[in-house]
């Protein structure tokens, strides 16, 4: 068994695998992340049967928290398996903060949250803004602190899908990219290492100042959202709201009451950036 350790924001992981190549890929991409001695979660990428380590290698994702019936992946998609395994530990296990499926960036000590379905563009937008004067905080999970309502960074490797891959190659040609994984269950996937300062400042939270629900592929429009609609959407964007009970209720309630929220529709990154800057300046 080969293994590696890394820390993303407040959470630390041990990833083990019978395949050295998966661990090598992870070590290369997570090279600039802290290496914790103690870990919160273990994820293992095993062969589904002993002989399937060699014959049509097929990766089963296991860990402290598991979903039954998770489909195995071919070895060439092993890095995606690691990403899914790590996500699952956070989604099912993490309780220190409220977890929202949202990307986040920071400027002047205040954070911008973007939530939405997969395909809304929240992840791509955060990656782009991270190269346009904002500090990238996370592309997938925003951790909301129960005590002060701050957004805590979770700057894992950015997981780019389909057209976002080309978009980011133009935006950040010198960034470090992982291997291109074609035709995964989520489409084509390629990871990109976040900007260095995102990793360096990954323990530095920021008070949320603006929450957006982006909608990619529609004519430009900005619509203010009512707190009840925002609350409803965020309960479904949260992996642990129900499990956190009253603590989670209070944390989400304050976020919804305190942070102005808009839905923005846009056709491309430049259009979205202009809307975001406009809303940011109006704060």
């Amino acid at each position: 068994m080969h293994e590696t350790h890394f820390k993303v924001g407040p959470a630390s992981f041990r990833v083990g695998s019978v395949w050295k190549e998966i661990i090598d890929q992870i070590e290369m991409l997570y090279a600039s992340y802290p290496k914790p001695k103690l870990t919160d979660y273990t994820v293992t990428l095993d062969a589904i049967r002993p002989w399937r380590r060699f014959v049509r290698p097929s990766v089963a994702i296991n860990g402290d928290f598991m979903l039954p019936d998770a489909a195995p992946l071919p070895l060439s998609h092993g890095l995606l398996g690691a990403e899914m395994g790590v996500n699952l530990q956070m989604a099912l296990g993490w309780r220190r903060q409220l977890i929202l499926h949202a990307s986040s960036v920071e400027k002047d000590g205040k954070s911008l949250l973007m939530s939405g379905e997969s395909g809304s563009g929240k992840s791509t937008l955060s990656a782009i803004l991270g190269h346009r004067g904002w500090r990238f905080m996370g592309d997938e999970f925003a951790l909301i602190d129960h005590d002060n309502g701050f957004v805590m960074p979770y700057p894992r490797l950015i997981s780019l899908k389909n057209q976002a891959i080309e978009t980011l190659k133009k935006e950040a040609p010198h960034a470090q990219f992982g291997p291109l994984m074609k035709d995964t269950p989520k489409g084509d996937i390629q990871h990109i290492v976040p900007p260095a300062q995102a990793i360096r400042k990954m323990e530095q939270g920021a008070k949320p100042a603006l929450l957006l629900f982006p909608n990619y592929g529609y004519d430009a429009e900005i619509r203010e959202m009512l707190p009840s609609e925002v609350f409803m959407r965020l309960t479904q964007a949260s992996a642990n709201f129900v499990g956190l009970g009253e603590t989670g209720f209070n944390t989400l309630k304050h976020l919804v009451l305190d942070v102005p929220t808009f839905e923005i529709a846009y056709q491309n990154g430049d259009e979205a950036e202009a809307m975001i800057n406009q809303l940011w300046e109006q704060l």
Binding site: T235, A237, F241, V242, G243
Partner: peptide, 10 residues
């Protein structure tokens, strides 16, 4: 009334 359900079980 709309009751909030766990997202993961949705």
């Amino acid at each position: 009334v709309v009751t909030v359900r766990p997202a993961i079980a949705q």
